[in-house]
């Protein structure tokens, strides 16, 4: 926002890459087509196993979002304490905020589609196995981060406190990943790389496309939210500047 003309730069946040939504929509449609029309029925679980493709892809997006949020928050804490790094610190803070939001969005999807898959297979919606508990607690932690970040607005202390909470969430993501190996549980170990896996080539193709399309979708949402946060920051700066000028005139 330039000091001379506060009005000049202010435009509502628009998607930066106009073709992006079309590519993302096409990728998601292809993935859905593969899930319902190409991937074969699983031999022990039946049709309900088709939840797997978007459930696991959403879990990948959530975990990447949370790790990214923790790393960007750590960078923000590090950079905000250094002279001349204010602009980069602001960008990392916005990136952390956007990644945290997308992590919580996909975490919600995982925590809702998971029980809907578990009920017909495990005969219960929820078990208190370590992976599920850790996933839920990490979701709570990042919801806390978002609440605090939203209340902090321009307050630097509040932003730093929120960033600290996000940094704590980073190791939790690693524990979610290794929970089944370390402490056991009912979760299938299909994507662990220790034998087994998806045995049919059409299942492998569908899974790969689902992962790629959901991650592309998540990346486009992060981009959208970052632009939104940048615009909000600029608007708040402009308000402060305008109030100063009005006070000076009167």
């Amino acid at each position: 926002m330039s000091a001379s003309s506060p009005d000049a730069d202010l435009q509502p946040a628009r998607p930066g890459v106009t073709w992006m939504p079309y590519v993302v929509a096409a990728a998601l449609l292809v993935a859905l087509f593969l899930v319902f029309f190409v991937a074969p029925r699983e031999r022990t679980m039946g049709e309900v196993q088709r939840i797997f493709y978007f459930h696991v892809a959403s879990a990948f997006a959530a975990l990447i979002g949370w790790v990214g949020c923790a790393v960007a928050s750590l960078a923000y804490l590090f950079l905000s304490a250094r002279q001349g790094m204010e602009v980069i610190a602001k960008i990392t803070d916005r990136l952390a905020h956007a990644l945290g939001e997308i992590g919580v969005l996909f975490g919600t999807i995982v925590l809702i589609t998971g029980p809907l898959w578990a009920k017909p297979v495990w005969k219960t919606y929820w078990t208190w196995e370590p992976r599920l508990v850790l996933m839920m607690l990490t979701q709570f932690l990042f919801i806390g981060y978002l609440v605090l970040r939203a209340y902090a607005k321009k307050d630097v202390a509040g932003r730093k406190l929120a960033a600290g909470i996000a940094v704590i969430g980073g190791p939790a993501v690693y524990l979610i990943h290794v929970a089944v190996e370390l402490w056991g549980g009912n979760h299938p170990q299909v994507v662990s790389g220790q034998g087994g896996g998806l045995q049919h080539p059409d299942m492998q193709l569908t899974f790969a496309v689902a992962i790629a399309s959901v991650l592309l979708f998540a990346a486009s949402l992060v981009h959208l939210r970052m632009r939104h946060h940048a615009f909000t920051d600029e608007l708040e700066d402009a308000y402060l500047e305008l109030s100063d000028r009005e006070d000076a005139r009167s």
Binding site: R41, Q49, V121, W122, P188, Q189, G195, L198, Q199
Partner: peptide
């Protein structure tokens, strides 16, 4: 509980 290590087709 079912804890499959592989998903196969029917």
């Amino acid at each position: 509980p079912q804890r499959p290590s592989a998903f196969g087709a029917t």
